[in-house]
Amino acid sequence: MNRIKPSTLAASIALLSTTLVGLPAQAADDPAKPNPVAEAVAKTMGKLRADEDMLAVLNAQAGLKPKPIEKLDVATARKQPTVTDGVNAVLKQQGKSTKPEDLVPGVTSMDATVDGAAGKLPATVYTPEGAGPFPVVVYFHGGGWVIADRKVYDGGARGIAKQANAVVVSVDYRQAPEAKFPAAWDDALASYKWTLANAAKLKGDAKKVALAGESAGGNLALATAIAARDAGVQQPAHVLAVYPVTQTSLNTESYLENAVAKPLNRPMVKWFVDKTTRSPADLKDKRLQLIDAKLEGMAPGVTIINARIDPLRSDGSKLEDALKKANVPVERRDYEGVTHEFFGTAAVVQKAKDAQAFAGQRLKNAFGG
């Protein structure tokens, strides 16, 4: 099927999406079921705009019957099928292994703990083959600071370890609403400091430590670089931000265009933010409103990866502009035909393989390798 370019569809999609957001978000007879009209439009948009391999993952996840996150309590939301579950379903359909070590050979992993701001945090350490010492990447998973964990985001973290030939420390920071803003941000900085102090024990080079993250985790990576600068802590060698949250308005071009997109939509983001923040005042905090933060000197370079079918696409674009204005070297790539969460789907989605290779090369360049 030929995919229609967003440049052709953008105006009509934005109008239709914002109209649909005004409809009841669930069926009247069952609060757990999404509005059938909105669901139908979202599926049609996916068929028109998504690459076939990306669409296969979305369809596989949909086949697991996820409920609309924005209409659930937190405990139930955390049990919903993820894009990673969709990837595994596609792999099974293809008769392939779903074991992470088979999908990304040459990388081993072990569970560990790191020091957070208020106690120990679970983590996974990914190590490439060889004697080392390797560069190190501290990685933060996505999930809107509320759902998911490092295991859900194994594909992205493991892929970075492979492509960058680096040790990756993937951290489970505290989540909202149990630990509201700024708990996750405090944990992110603390885990970065812990990694600097313990890199050698992980076959890592403490002089070459970068930050990375996806979605909410991309925000944490960027905010941690700024916090490290302000605290006089060693500057990260690089920051890799994959479809990061960089501002708090829900009325950007991409939010309107992708208001009912899958797997992330506008109402879901509002749900995440409402669960994470303590009051509306937090929305003005520069750790969330990153585009208004002092960005000068935060890192020697930043890489931003965006997906075209994603409410957060404009966040990446706005951050790119802000970084350039602050004279921070930045390169951003916007991948056509894929959605939010695509980065960790490299086992079955070509654009994810491409994005991971690009990210790995950018990190290698930053590490001097």
Rank of each mutant, 00 (worst) to 15 (best):
Val171Trp: 00
Val171Lys: 00
Val171Tyr: 00
Val171Cys: 04
Asp172Asn: 12
Asp172Ile: 11
Asp172Val: 12
Tyr173Glu: 02
Tyr173Gln: 08
Tyr173Thr: 06
Tyr173Cys: 05
Tyr173Val: 04
Arg174Glu: 04
Arg174Trp: 07
Arg174Pro: 01
Arg174Cys: 04
Arg174Ala: 04
Gln175Arg: 07
Gln175Lys: 09
Gln175Phe: 12
Ala176Gly: 15
Ala176Lys: 02
Ala176Leu: 12
Ala176Asp: 07
Pro177Met: 11
Pro177Ser: 09
Pro177Glu: 07
Glu178Phe: 08
Glu178Leu: 15
Ala179Ile: 10
Lys180Ile: 14
Lys180Trp: 14
Lys180Gly: 12
Lys180Phe: 14
Phe181Gln: 01
Phe181His: 05
Phe181Ile: 08
Phe181Pro: 00
Pro182Gly: 10
Pro182Leu: 11
Ala183Met: 11
Ala183Glu: 01
Ala184Lys: 02
Ala184Cys: 12
Ala184Thr: 03
Ala184Val: 05
Trp185Lys: 04
Trp185Asp: 09
Trp185Cys: 03
Asp186Gly: 10
Asp186Ser: 13
Asp187Cys: 11
Asp187Ser: 10
Asp187Glu: 12
Asp187Arg: 06
Ala188Cys: 15
Ala188Ser: 14
Ala188Glu: 10
Ala188Trp: 02
Leu189His: 02
Leu189Cys: 08
Leu189Trp: 01
Ala190Asn: 03
Ser191Lys: 01
Ser191Phe: 02
Tyr192Pro: 01
Tyr192Lys: 01
Lys193Glu: 11
Trp194Gln: 11
Trp194Lys: 08
Trp194Ile: 13
Thr195Gly: 08
Leu196Thr: 10
Leu196Ser: 08
Leu196His: 10
Leu196Cys: 11
Leu196Val: 15
Ala197Val: 14
Ala197Pro: 07
Asn198Cys: 15
Asn198Tyr: 14
Ala199Val: 15
Ala200Phe: 07
Ala200Ser: 15
Ala200Gly: 14
Ala200Glu: 15
Lys201Gln: 14
Lys201Trp: 09
Lys203Arg: 09
Lys203Ala: 15
Lys203Met: 14
Gly204Tyr: 05
Gly204Val: 04
Gly204Leu: 05
Gly204Thr: 09
Asp205His: 13
Asp205Met: 12
Ala206Leu: 12
Ala206Asp: 07
Ala206Met: 10
Lys207Gln: 15
Lys208Trp: 05
Val209Tyr: 06
Val209Ile: 12
Val209Gly: 06
Ala210Arg: 01
Ala210Val: 09
Ala210Tyr: 02
Leu211Thr: 00
Leu211Met: 04
Ala212Pro: 01
Ala212Met: 03
Glu214Ala: 14
Glu214Met: 12
Glu214Gln: 11
Ser215Ile: 13
Ser215Gln: 05
Ser215Asn: 05
Ser215Trp: 07
Ala216Trp: 06
Ala216Arg: 00
Ala216Phe: 13
Gly217Arg: 06
Gly217Thr: 04
Gly217Lys: 06
Gly217Met: 05
Gly217Val: 07
Gly217His: 02
Gly218Asn: 11
Asn219Gly: 10
Asn219Glu: 14
Leu220Lys: 03
Leu220Trp: 00
Leu220Thr: 10
Ala221Met: 08
Ala221Pro: 02
Ala221Lys: 02
Ala221Arg: 03
Leu222Met: 08
Leu222Cys: 05
Leu222Tyr: 04
Ala223Thr: 14
